[in-house]
Simulated assay, not measured.
Amino acid sequence: MKRRSVLMKVGLWVLLACAASVQAQTRAWLDRDRIGEGDVVTLNIETDQPGAAPDYAPLQADFALGGRTSGRQTRLVNGSVSTTALFGVVLTPRRSGALQVPALRVGAARTAPLQLRVDPAPVASAGDAVAFVETEVDDPQPYVQQSVGVVVRLFFATQLASGELDLATPASASLQRVGEDRTSSRDVGGRRYNVVERRFLLIPERSGPMRLQGARFSGRGAGGLFDDLLGRGTGALSARAADQTLQVRAVPDAAPQPWLPLKDLRLRYTAAPQSAQVGQAFTLQVEATAVGATRAQFPELPVPALGDAAQVFAEPPQYDETFDGGSPRLKLTRRYSIVPQRPGPLQVPGLRLGWWDVGAAEARTAALPDLGLEVAPGTGAAAAVPAPDAPAATVAPP
């Protein structure tokens, strides 16, 4: 019985070995396993499956795909003819560090994953390189939830055929691109550079040190097309800015609520009445200008509370967002229609907003003066008192 069991196991191993010998042989390899940022590497794939081709889609997460090649090779081994297909693709890594070339499907088989080490590109000095990158932060010591302007500038002294300019999002923060790229030219170190300026908005979500990786550029200068197709990478360009560490400060205990960290806040009347009359609406318009805030961060301007002395109708606010230098700038305008309900003196309280001055590290209050008006009687009873079937006016919520 024991002998029969051993024979059955041996037979099973023989069958498995025979099955493996008839399966397609598919393998992948890189022409080198370590490169510098901005360089390219060639992925080679060999298979003996007739009509099979690799699916390169999984590569696009970490690599830009360049030139592709394919061919067939026929061999005579021990009297048997074997045909293999060879495929090649040029890969440009999208980032530095330890990368994995994922397993790829080739017909009915899959290649084994491969490891690639990409060394960071050295930080180029202004005037000494064909291309270099700068990362400028408008506040290296921001508060939690403060809007931080980040400007990335790419300098290049040659014509570009293609390229990518990236800024990684730090941990415990949000990062979004703002506006359109700006182009200009500058003389740096006696050399003329074209400049592309890109703006981002960074909002830290947690206090403590926050590492901001320098912006990175990878591309190809004009004239390097055939070299790139052959995998030599002669036309490749790469550059990166220096990393920075921001010291994010916690919300102070003495800060007004809601928390509004700004560089500056101004309020002003852009329309105010000189006179008023019972039953006749007059317009009050307020403008707020905030440096260091976006529309999503800024609270809505409140509605003046006038009790039964007047009805107040607030229109939706109008927003204008810009990027001034390295900081976001918001202008908010809101219009109020006020209908006095009785003659006599009417005082409209000025708006007040508490905010935190990030430069001076102290609480401040932006305030408008109260408006005093003498309301004249209406021209008739109907003007002073709404009709019974008219809908009651309500005060818009703040």
Score class of each variant (00 low, 15 high):
A28Y: 02
W29H: 07
L30D: 05
D31E: 14
D33K: 06
G38H: 10
D39P: 11
V40R: 12
V41P: 09
D48Y: 13
A53Q: 15
P54C: 08
Y56H: 02
L59V: 00
L59T: 00
F63Q: 12
A64V: 12
L65F: 01
G67K: 00
G67D: 01
S70G: 03
G71F: 06
R72K: 10
N78F: 06
N78K: 13
N78L: 08
N78A: 13
V81F: 06
T84A: 11
F87P: 06
V89S: 08
V90R: 06
V90T: 10
S96E: 14
S96I: 07
G97P: 00
Q100E: 12
P102C: 03
A103P: 04
G107V: 11
G107T: 09
G107W: 08
A108L: 14
A109H: 06
R110D: 04
T111N: 11
A112M: 09
P113F: 01
L114Q: 12
L114D: 06
V118D: 13
P120I: 10
A121G: 12
P122K: 01
A124P: 06
A124T: 08
A129S: 09
V133H: 09
T135R: 08
E136Y: 13
E136K: 15
P140H: 04
P140G: 03
V144R: 12
Q145A: 12
V148T: 13
V148P: 12
V151T: 15
L154V: 01
L154W: 01
L154D: 01
Q159K: 12
L160K: 05
